[in-house]
Amino acid sequence: MRASRLLSLLLLLQTRGRMTARELAEALEVSVRTVYRDVESLSAAGVPVYADRGPVGGYQLLGGYRTRLTGLTTEEAEALFLAGMPGPAAELGLGTVLATAELKLQAALPTELAVGSGRVRDRFHLDAPSWFRDSEPTPHLAALADAVWADRLVEVRYRRWKTPREVTRTLAPLGVVLKAGRWYLVARADEDVRTYRVAAILELTVLEENFTRPTEFDLAEFWQSWTDQYERSVYRTEAKVRMTAAALARMAYVFPPAMARGARQAAGAPDETGWLHTTVPIESIKHGHTELLKLGAEVEVLGPPELRDRFTATARALVALYPAAEPDQVPNRR
């Protein structure tokens, strides 16, 4: 275990350059004291690692030093092949590159590792898009990815929901994200970092001008923070309802995750008839009406009043469309 950690520390310094003891500790999930001991062990073994003192100091390898200790374990080789995403890679313009890289990797692996990695591809497959949704056309994705790699500014004509519907912006593209089969661009516009649907980009021009990528920016961290904030901002109100326990369980399959999760967390205990009280996060009265209709007669809306009034009107309209059958019209089921 310690030998593996020492190798990881060495590869971190080789790939990232100067790192502080705290940054190394966080990356390796150990204490700072453990990092100190590991650096001393590497130095004793002849690895030219040295420390710069001061507030901007840290550990780094002597210039030009490269380790050849890059052997893969069976689990690491299998994980590399599991990480392959042929569909998204092709959309980024990297489909052929990925296939070639996998062939080279497999050819370079020892026989036992090559066989194991091939078994992973035979048994696991990633299908990124969600159910019942066609993939969005993203004709500008490959060019956008090139601009991200090269730190080049882009000018986009973009379609949005609010007016004016079409706007032109100059953006510094920081990264692209694939979320449930949809591609998003994370870019700096003026001084703010924002997200854009790649499918909504109508025109894209990669400019000659480069931009300086902020050193502190972390794409994964930003995306997690943005999605959390987005979910909180979307569901601006809530519906108070009475529903069956069976309907609450079914919400996980027919409702957006945030709505189903919120309803479960707020749910009281079912009474003797199997009904319970809870609150459901909703975007608006119209949205709540559309979504909660999925539960039919297994939910009663208690508030807000505007939402209950909508359900009352819907129920009356349904009665008008489907009047109760007269007694002599009910089929004899004997």
Results as ranks from 00 to 15, higher is better:
T163Q: 15
L10D: 10
Q106E: 11
V193R: 02
A21V: 12
A263F: 03
F132C: 07
Y36N: 12
R213I: 04
V39C: 08
E26T: 12
E112W: 10
V47M: 07
D218E: 13
P139Q: 09
F132R: 10
V234L: 10
R119W: 05
V198F: 00
E75L: 13
V177T: 03
Q60L: 12
R157P: 09
W131C: 03
A189H: 15
A180I: 01
P139W: 08
F211D: 04
V206W: 04
T290V: 02
E203K: 12
W223S: 01
Y184C: 11
E221H: 11
A269W: 01
P305L: 14
L98A: 10
R2L: 07
P173R: 02
D127Q: 09
S233G: 08
E191M: 08
G95M: 03
A3F: 05
T205Y: 00
P88N: 10
A200N: 14
L113N: 04
A114V: 07
Q265R: 13
S4R: 11
F217G: 09
L207S: 02
V120D: 04
A3V: 03
Q329W: 09
A220D: 13
A252S: 12
V49R: 06
T70D: 04
K179V: 06
V234Q: 05
V39T: 02
Y59L: 14
L12N: 05
T138L: 03
R236I: 04
P86C: 04
Y184N: 06
L293K: 14
R18A: 13
R22S: 13
